[in-house]
């Protein structure tokens, strides 16, 4: 039985568990590639990939760039600024230009929710969502899933709690899809002002207090709290946020089990996460970064090229020639 990913990766909401597992399984051998002295394989040789980032991002863009280069693809970085007046128009123009240049794949980050799907519908190139508005950030969730699986050996049945500004977080949304599809129990924790409506209908529990989350969880995925949340009036101050919801060693000590600590980065030390926790023995934050490159390599590899009518040639999986 073959599992296909389709042309684009716009999010995890509409992927099947099998498709998600395929990506995670494919990422494993790519981890090994990043350990070699020559961190390159020719799998995407000659492919042109554009990193189209309408929002500033250093770490995600670099991670994708490494993934692309390690697959021997040719990469181009475009830092476009989306004009607030004609965002939609700009995207359509961009799509047409990319198509005219015969780009093979586009990795897009855009401040509008749905932008990746919008682009994917208009060009023949593969489109990979590197974060669209508040909608999804699928590769982040995939690397989070891989990191959890590496640490715990499984995902089904694990209790994973996302802590922080879930309302504005595309990372949280993608994680909720991925975790629930793979059978984890999911919860969210934070101020009521930063929780999206209807979250319980997705099968997600809510804890108003971090102490309750810590008592329940096997894994805490701590989301970054942005300064503008305070400015827009969702919380009174970063200081109060730390005092009420900060993940500190003292609070973690009260848990009956060792809780795996995750964070998509970049961290606000002393706001959502205490430094001692980020640097502590149960933190897998750096593993997340390592896995990020492998997961992105897997996604690029799985989406690139391939004419399904020749699928039979691959049936025996190597060795027949």
């Amino acid at each position: 039985m073959t599992v296909n990913l389709g042309k684009d990766l716009t999010g995890l909401e509409h992927l099947t568990p099998e498709q998600i597992r395929l990506i995670l399984d494919t990422a494993e051998p790519f981890k090994e590639v990043s350990e070699r002295p020559i961190k390159k394989v020719p799998a995407l040789r000659g492919k042109t990939i554009v990193n189209l980032f309408f929002e500033a991002s250093t770490r995600t863009r670099i991670s994708f760039e490494f993934a692309e280069k390690r697959l021997s693809a040719d990469t181009v970085n475009v830092a476009a600024t989306g004009s607030s007046v004609s965002k939609g128009e700009t995207l359509v123009d961009t799509a047409k230009n990319l198509e005219a240049m015969r780009i093979d794949m586009v990795v897009i980050r855009h401040p509008s929710s749905g932008a990746a799907g919008f682009l994917g519908q208009r060009i023949r190139s593969n489109v990979i969502n590197a974060g669209d508005g508040k909608h999804e950030h699928p590769t982040q969730a995939l690397l989070d899933l891989l990191t959890i699986r590496d640490k715990h050996g499984k995902i089904a049945g694990l209790k994973v709690c996302l802590v922080g500004d879930v309302l504005h977080s595309r990372v949280a949304r993608s994680n909720i899809w991925g975790l629930t599809k793979l059978g984890a129990q999911v919860a969210v924790c934070g101020p009521y002002t930063l929780m999206p409506r209807g979250i319980e209908e997705l099968g997600v529990q809510f804890f108003p207090r971090i102490e309750e989350a810590i008592e329940w969880a096997d894994v805490l995925n701590i989301l970054r709290l942005q300064l503008e949340r305070m400015e827009k009036g969702f919380i009174p101050s970063l200081r109060e946020y730390y005092r009420v919801w900060g993940v500190t060693p003292e609070r973690l000590e009260r848990s009956p089990r060792a809780i795996t600590i995750m964070h998509p980065g970049p961290m606000n030390r002393g706001v959502e996460i205490d430094s001692r926790v980020a640097d502590g023995p149960h933190s897998v934050i750096l593993d997340q970064v390592t896995n990020g490159v492998a997961v992105r390599m897997a996604v690029l590899y799985l989406l690139a090229g391939g004419r399904p009518e020749l699928a039979d040639a691959a049936k025996r999986g190597g060795g027949a020639e």
């Binding site: 990913l5 494919t26 051998p29 090229g305 391939g306 040639a313 691959a314 999986g317």
Partner: peptide, 9 residues
């Protein structure tokens, strides 16, 4: 030319 992608060992 192959698709879907083969599993990597």
């Amino acid at each position: 030319t192959v698709g879907p992608k083969p599993v990597i060992g």
